[in-house]
Design a protein around this nucleic acid. Structure first.
Lengths: 153, 153
DNA sequence: CCGTATCCATTCCGATACTG
DNA sequence: CAGTATCGGAATGGATACGG
């Protein structure tokens, strides 16, 4: 009897997140939340997904500690969904995904949503993997090893 | 009749990638490929997924331009799967995911796979979103706007 | 407006058997 | 070793009806 594989005990930090965000909607909810969306209806309208599955995703995100619910600030009797630190910490993941999609999944003349630096207003924000000294690392300049706990340095 | 939603025409560069990598296995294949895995059997052994679905994922990755097949270098009559530039460009995405998983999905004393700088050997590699001038940007310091083509600057 | 519950088609995926 | 073919159970996700 087939049982869905889970990565929750994987020793690879790339694998575990996929149980939580490895689907087609969750990261988009986080993306919206990062842009300030907090209400059920707003998510639903922006994403165009069915209410039941939005509901399920939202609950999963709350139960996994990426979102938390607070009483609505507008006096209505409902809730708002706001990012926790853990959820906000997905920002680099979203940004990296955005950079990749922008570069490889659009025609040059196509209009797309871009990330800009609020301060300068410039269409920037590139995502890089950095060494301790600030050097930019590529795939070839890194390796994977097993280690425990907080980094020694 | 329910028809699966696709993001292929979304104007958001975060959404489109999810059609290609928004599942539980694809990014892990890319991760392995970034670490030098090229053979069917190696992927299968590392990931522990069924051969049929590995086959399907591999084909999808090839057809989407993230992998390409080359004749086996060892003289055998099979193929090797190697990353294209497009596939390699997912490195920051994987690294960001790794960083997040490392920080939030492991107990402190748990052993995990870490990314290290080949040159210094140090367990580093943090992923950051950078402005043009090198400033590090957080979620609050960025905004999203619509634009076309290559960035004006 | 905010959700929950139900129903159903589609898709996913694991096990296994089979071919070269 | 490198795949393909098939099968069946499970999860996904869309439509919609309903309740607060």
């Amino acid at each position: 009897m087939p049982k869905r594989t889970t990565h929750e005990n994987a020793s690879c930090p790339v694998a575990r997140p996929l149980d939580l965000i490895g689907d087609g909607w969750t990261l988009l909810i986080i993306r919206d939340a990062l842009e300030g969306v907090t209400r059920f209806g707003q998510f639903q309208k922006n994403l165009g997904l069915a209410k039941n599955i939005l509901s399920a995703r939202l609950h999963a995100l709350v139960s996994n500690g990426m979102l938390e619910t607070i009483p609505a600030t507008d006096g209505s009797s409902y809730q708002e969904y706001v990012l926790t630190e853990k959820g906000r910490a997905l920002f680099p993941v979203i940004a990296a995904l955005r950079q990749w999609g922008d570069a490889y999944l659009f025609d040059d003349d196509e209009v797309r949503a871009r990330l800009v630096d609020r301060e300068s207003g410039r269409p920037v924000a590139r995502v890089e993997v950095l060494a301790e000294d600030g050097r930019i690392l590529g795939p070839e300049t890194t390796a994977v090893t097993m280690a425990a706990g907080r980094p020694a340095g």
